[in-house]
Nucleic acid binder design. Sequence first.
DNA 1: TACGGTCAACGTACGATGTACGTAAGGTGT
DNA 2: ACACCTTACGTACATCGTACGTTGACCGTA
Lengths: 206, 206
Amino acid sequence: MLTRERIVGAAVALVERDGADALSMRAVAGELGVAVMSLYNHVPNKAALLRGIAENTMESLDLPDDGRLDWRQRARELIRAFRRVAREYPHCTNLIVTHSVEVPFGLKPVEHGLAIAHDAGFDGPTSVRLMRAIIAYALGAQLRETDMVKMLDSLPADAAGAFAELDPARFPRVTALAKELTEHDPDTDFEFGLDLFINALDALPR
Amino acid sequence: MLTRERIVGAAVALVERDGADALSMRAVAGELGVAVMSLYNHVPNKAALLRGIAENTMESLDLPDDGRLDWRQRARELIRAFRRVAREYPHCTNLIVTHSVEVPFGLKPVEHGLAIAHDAGFDGPTSVRLMRAIIAYALGAQLRETDMVKMLDSLPADAAGAFAELDPARFPRVTALAKELTEHDPDTDFEFGLDLFINALDALPR
DNA sequence: TACGGTCAACGTACGATGTACGTAAGGTGT
DNA sequence: ACACCTTACGTACATCGTACGTTGACCGTA
């Protein structure tokens, strides 16, 4: 029996295995050993399938918000929950982020974020704004990370060497920092920016 | 005479007028009153056309970095330069961001950013990391803004009302902040996050 | 003037994609 | 036994990127 769940599951598996570009109705049908048009009995169109993937991915968010902890720690954990999902379903996450799929995660994370901001002493409008800022950072970090990976893959082998051999008169810092620019530790980078953000919030007047 | 420049120009115009989804080789050819395959005498494939769009868009970045100013102000202006481009070519910018087009902007902005970080007193590795964090924010802010616009368009009319009528027991903050959540002033949001970031940098030990 | 070469533009054609629409087969209630 | 509904299927079409071969205008040389 074909169901929406099986279809979405196959799509998720396919995307994680072969990348987002490999997602086509025909490929999903093939994955299930089924004819293409059979899918349309359960999924109205491809956009709906994308929404299904988004829901399936984002519902693996677990948000164990312990109100007794320090709000900084709670905020960190909330953002890290997103990052964990992105690590578990990297290709699906990218698909969602880049195709700006319709409101993938529900209101629960928003509610949590606003609660944390409230407990930290921020007023309503400020809470909304700082949530937006932190969401922007999390989205961008994910995007930038995959960009970086792709770039480093496309550069031949000795990317640092190529940077280092630029004209030092025009690019003094780039040549000096060639090694750092071509090295990439996603977790460290992410945590660095996250810390920056949390500290900035901490310093904000309320 | 058909040239790469004319083709890219037509593509940019088309994307800004009809959106990124409207970009097809046939549409670009139509825009120029020319047969589809004629484009391939000047552009090897669609990916190259995307790169052309990215270059064309990002070369309108102007970076008047005045080294005598305060580094905070210089950093702000560097980020705002990106945002200006995003405001001038919104659809092209989104196309670039979401399709992670190959290294669209050159090394000049990177060099500027690193120079500013150096003048602010940060060491090399830290400069690289904080540049990455700020790039993540700028990318994500752009992404989130278009998401937000799309979401508000898709929601019927009285989105705030819909939020406000949720179960206040499950979503106390969301219902209380329904108005703020459905209102959107992109510039204010962007500047709020940018300030947050700059202040965080300012507070960072060096 | 005639000719051979170059090159920009074109037309045809193919495979892949999303999906509208009609068909068939098996189960269920009367 | 018969009508009906559900579920899967096959055919068909528009649109996409692009490989490949053809055309026709131009230009230097004989």
